[in-house]
Computed example of a mutant assay.
Amino acid sequence: MSVIKKSVVRAASLAAASVAAVGLFSTGAANADTFVPLPGAELNHTLPNGLSITARIANESATINPSLGSTPLHRNTWVSGSAQVEVHGPHKGTKITPGYVVGCQVDISGGAGNGGAGLTQSGENLSGNLSSGANLTLGPGQATSFLLLDIEKPDVYGDEGHTFAVKFTGKDGSVTWTDSTIGLNGCAGYAQARSFVRVETTTEQGISEFRVWGQPFSIG
């Protein structure tokens, strides 16, 4: 189950782009699930108006099954983590948008699905669904990204609308996900994934946005 909570939120972080992807599998263990703890990241970002924001990716991990269906063209990964953001001063609203980049035989160290758990956020009257992840098809040299959140809420005309971020107006906010799925098909070579969190803050001077990146990890 994934839960969005407005507790001590410390936001996403810009992981060091120089971190190399981590190989996970040894000969003879290709069909075993592999649990991979990940270091997360932290970024202290200052907006042009001087407002300071701390963003973190925390408690991040992946559980990897390198070959669903006993073929190297199919992989399945369950990812967990928390995007935490703290705004050190007045703002008119900050949005947290978590997601992942997935690549097949391509370097994603530079930062280049649905159904699942219930979603709640205390104090914001927000409810909806947290996406369980994505089912992707990629060939060699291809990369794509997907967002974890898909929250249904009426638009200004009362029709069904969707938002992919959580917004808070206090000093902190967070999004936590557990066992969201990354399913990958069609990639015959090595594959990697990498978390990111987009942070967008609105102030009297305008809207500012930055991203925090987790460490790339192998998914087989």
Results as ranks from 00 to 15, higher is better:
residue 1 M to F: 09
residue 7 S to Y: 05
residue 10 R to N: 11
residue 10 R to G: 08
residue 13 S to L: 11
residue 14 L to S: 08
residue 25 F to C: 02
residue 27 T to M: 10
residue 27 T to G: 05
residue 29 A to K: 15
residue 34 T to L: 15
residue 35 F to D: 13
residue 36 V to H: 04
residue 37 P to N: 10
residue 37 P to T: 12
residue 38 L to Q: 14
residue 40 G to V: 01
residue 41 A to E: 02
residue 42 E to Q: 09
residue 43 L to C: 08
residue 44 N to Y: 05
residue 48 P to E: 02
residue 49 N to P: 07
residue 50 G to Q: 06
residue 54 T to Q: 10
residue 54 T to M: 03
residue 56 R to W: 01
residue 58 A to E: 12
residue 60 E to N: 12
residue 63 T to V: 14
residue 65 N to D: 09
residue 66 P to V: 00
residue 66 P to S: 01
residue 69 G to M: 07
residue 69 G to T: 10
residue 74 H to E: 06
residue 79 V to Y: 08
residue 80 S to K: 15
residue 81 G to R: 04
residue 81 G to F: 02
residue 82 S to L: 07
residue 83 A to Q: 06
residue 83 A to K: 06
residue 85 V to H: 02
residue 86 E to H: 03
residue 88 H to F: 11
residue 91 H to F: 01
residue 98 P to M: 00
residue 99 G to F: 12
residue 99 G to N: 06
residue 101 V to E: 02
residue 101 V to D: 06
residue 106 V to W: 05
residue 107 D to G: 08
residue 110 G to V: 05
residue 110 G to L: 13
residue 120 T to C: 04
residue 126 L to D: 01
residue 130 L to H: 04
residue 135 N to Q: 12
residue 136 L to T: 08
residue 138 L to A: 14
residue 138 L to T: 07
residue 138 L to R: 03
residue 140 P to C: 07
residue 142 Q to L: 09
residue 144 T to E: 08
residue 146 F to K: 00
residue 147 L to S: 10
residue 147 L to Y: 03
residue 148 L to P: 06
residue 151 I to M: 00
residue 151 I to R: 00
residue 159 D to M: 12
residue 160 E to T: 15
residue 160 E to N: 12
residue 162 H to C: 00
residue 163 T to S: 06
residue 163 T to Y: 05
residue 164 F to Q: 01
residue 165 A to K: 00
residue 169 T to G: 01
residue 171 K to F: 14
residue 173 G to S: 10
residue 178 T to D: 12
residue 179 D to N: 14
residue 180 S to A: 14
residue 182 I to P: 11
residue 183 G to Y: 05
residue 183 G to I: 13
residue 184 L to K: 00
residue 188 A to I: 15
residue 190 Y to S: 13
residue 191 A to I: 06
residue 195 S to P: 10
residue 196 F to G: 00
residue 197 V to E: 00
residue 202 T to Q: 14
residue 210 F to E: 00
residue 212 V to D: 02
residue 213 W to A: 00
residue 215 Q to L: 05
residue 215 Q to I: 03
residue 215 Q to F: 01
residue 217 F to S: 15
residue 218 S to C: 11
residue 219 I to A: 11
residue 219 I to G: 07
residue 220 G to P: 07
